[in-house]
Computed example of a mutant assay.
Amino acid sequence: MTLTIRRVYHIAAFSWYAFVVKNLAAKDGEQLPPGIFVYGGPWKYLTFLNLLLQMLFFGVAALSDLQAGNKAESTLNRCKDLLFSVFAFPVGTFVVVLFWTIFAYDRELVYPATIDTFFPPWMNHAMHTLVLPFLLGEVVVQPHIYPQTKHALQALGGVGAAYLFWIIWVYLSVGIWVYPLLAHFSTPGLVGLFFFNMSVVVLLYLLGNKLNSRFWSKDVTSGGH
């Protein structure tokens, strides 16, 4: 894939996410359904944090494209590979898969119908659908060097635990679960849900590694296990 195509793709993706984040952040302070932006605003939602993650990744990727060819091993390039392989692909794919799975079962558990009044359909799909095509496009546009699996899983586990503590803190502070679904679980159930979700994220990390290796088998070498 030519450098020009990569540059256009990365700049376009970054611009799109910047546009979505700006529109979503503008909703903070409006008259929204009870509990939506109470305590922590949009920062308590994995969907919003994922949008920031995707915007950060594509921004770093766009900057990396501007480097000369002999700087392929630069810190910026390594940061780009780390962001995509360990965080952007598995977390972004997880958000899409989990959201639409729960939405199909009972949308009130994750995205109550009252939200439709404030967030138009295009914004819902921008947050929960288009993330996946952008990530799959990145797999096609450019190869990525994956770190050692044990290091990647340690990083994913640390980020997952940090987010878990954050949503528990929100609940203890204002008595509202970030997602209505969580109110249906006991404490052991919440622990089990966390480990289940982390297992799915791990599988998605391995999937991303496999896709990267298959598509770019002659161009990139994985960091191994």
Rank of each mutant, 00 (worst) to 15 (best):
M1A: 12
T2F: 14
I5K: 11
I5M: 08
R7M: 05
V8F: 13
Y9P: 02
Y9I: 00
H10L: 03
I11S: 10
I11H: 11
A13I: 04
A13W: 13
A13P: 06
Y17P: 05
V20L: 13
V21G: 03
N23D: 05
A26Y: 12
K27N: 10
K27H: 08
K27D: 04
D28G: 03
P34S: 11
P34I: 07
G35C: 06
I36W: 15
Y39L: 09
Y39F: 15
Y39N: 09
G41D: 05
K44E: 01
Y45L: 03
T47F: 03
F48Q: 01
N50D: 02
N50P: 01
L51P: 03
L51C: 04
L52Q: 11
L53P: 02
F57K: 01
V60L: 09
V60G: 02
L63G: 04
L63V: 04
S64D: 09
L66W: 10
L66T: 10
Q67I: 00
Q67Y: 05
G69V: 00
N70A: 06
A72C: 02
L76Q: 06
R78N: 10
C79W: 14
D81E: 07
L82R: 05
L82Q: 10
L83Y: 05
V86E: 11
A88G: 01
F89L: 08
F89N: 05
V97G: 07
V97C: 11
L98I: 01
A104T: 08
D106L: 04
E108W: 14
E108F: 14
A113D: 14
T114K: 15
I115T: 13
D116E: 12
T117C: 11
F118W: 13
P120F: 10
P120V: 11
P120I: 03
N124M: 03
H125C: 08
H125Q: 12
M127R: 07
H128W: 08
V131C: 01
V131W: 11
V131F: 01
P133V: 00
P133Q: 02
F134T: 00
G137C: 07
V139M: 09
V139R: 09
V140G: 03
I145D: 12
I145S: 14
Y146M: 12
Y146L: 07
Q148L: 09
T149Y: 10
K150Q: 04
A152L: 12
Q154F: 13
Q154T: 06
G160S: 15
Y163C: 00
Y163A: 00
Y163L: 00
F165I: 14
F165R: 08
W169I: 05
W169G: 04
V170D: 12
Y171T: 01
S173G: 06
S173A: 12
V178S: 08
P180K: 09
P180I: 01
L181W: 13
H184V: 02
H184K: 12
S186P: 10
T187F: 12
T187E: 13
P188T: 01
P188Y: 02
V191R: 14
G192Y: 11
G192C: 06
L193C: 02
F195H: 04
N197T: 04
M198D: 04
V201S: 03
V202H: 06
V202I: 03
Y205P: 04
L206W: 10
G208M: 00
N209K: 11
K210F: 15
N212P: 12
N212V: 00
S213T: 12
R214A: 15
R214D: 15
W216V: 00
S217Y: 13
S217P: 09
D219C: 07
V220G: 04
V220F: 11
V220Y: 07
V220S: 08
T221S: 14
G223R: 02
